[in-house]
Simulated scan of single mutants.
Amino acid sequence: MTSIRRRVLLAAPALALPASARAQAPWPDRPIRWINPGPAGGAGDVLSRLVGDRLGARLGQTVVVENRPGAGTNIGMTAVARSAPDGYTVGLASIASHAANKWLHANMPFDPEKDFAAVGMIALVPNIVVVPPQIPPRDLQGFIAWAKGLGRPLNFGSVGIGSSQHLAAAQFGQITGIEIIHAPYNQAGQMNTDLIEGRLDVLFQSISAVSGMAQAGRMRPIAVSGPERVPAFPDLPTMREQGVDVTTTGWFGLAAPAGVPEPILARLDEALAACMEEADLRQRIVAGGSVPRMMRRAEFARFMAEQSERMGAIIRATGARAG
């Protein structure tokens, strides 16, 4: 038998394999899309780029962050849910997308439990209560007194219906009896400008979006809307410390479309957990105003289910709704 004939026969079994088996390549072999369903410049955008960069280094592929804001995160997370379950699209899950929205929207475009697979938690995102520098209040109780004397509702903005910013403000209004009007924004920068120029009265804003302006005196921080003080503003009391029991805080984690193969989910889980152990990344997350909080897949799935029940109770109590 000639050497050419022998090579053809040896190659025959491989050629006879099904096309799907021959085409299957190790994952990942191309860039991964990370959808941030919030606005550019917000806390979710900052975390997506910080963590996405490190995740890409761990996986050996570029992670490309795509901002898809709108409808209180529903636009971006719908894109995630409807993506091919091949591990090449992931999304930033949040208190809005996976806890609050199903209680706020009559017709959700996705099921937050059935249409996603949890990958892992990344961080808690406390909000800071900031007011325009030209108004007199210096603390939360002073602001409450000022607001009650206005003779009109308060105007506040948030990154969207169902966000921790929206729900914290709704709780504040329900507890204090102050009427507040919500204006959702797709641009964190425009929302901050409107506060500084007095078109908004208060923001329950992510620390990463306003820390520089607050420290420069362009807006005045008066409280933290979370259960604990934050490293970025260690002397700033929480709302609870100032007599208003609002402890709603944001959080972010990574989710994939339902149906992603188990080996890919396991590798994503391992890579994300390894990223979250990196001291430099954790320091950068803290510097951005968030609190690193790692949870693996199963724990994060339980956390999101618990948060959904908690947000449902808050939304029913406050009467918050979409539209």
Rank of each mutant, 00 (worst) to 15 (best):
F172M: 14
A96F: 04
W27Q: 12
L55E: 08
A266F: 01
D111A: 07
S83N: 00
G226F: 05
L236S: 08
E197F: 11
I181L: 12
K114A: 13
I178L: 10
V202E: 07
I264K: 03
G72V: 05
A271Q: 06
L236A: 08
Q61I: 13
D280S: 15
V244G: 05
R229W: 07
L140Q: 01
G42C: 12
F143S: 00
D280L: 11
R58H: 13
R6C: 02
A258D: 04
L281I: 08
R5H: 12
G212N: 10
P26Y: 02
G76R: 08
A169F: 00
I178K: 07
I35G: 12
L272I: 01
A274C: 05
M1S: 15
V64Q: 15
P292G: 10
Q171G: 06
G212D: 13
L281G: 11
R297F: 12
R49G: 08
S164A: 15
G52C: 11
V64D: 10
V210L: 03
P261S: 08
A232R: 05
N67I: 04
P184G: 01
F204Y: 14
S163G: 13
V80I: 04
A118K: 08
T238H: 06
A169Q: 06
G217W: 02
A214N: 11
A99Y: 03
G253T: 04
L124V: 02
R282P: 07
T193P: 00
D45L: 04
M121K: 13
V131M: 03
K148E: 00
E270L: 10
G120Y: 09
T318Y: 03
A11E: 14
H182M: 05
G38V: 03
I35S: 12
L272E: 09
G217K: 04
L265A: 02
I75F: 12
A96S: 13
N107F: 00
I122E: 03
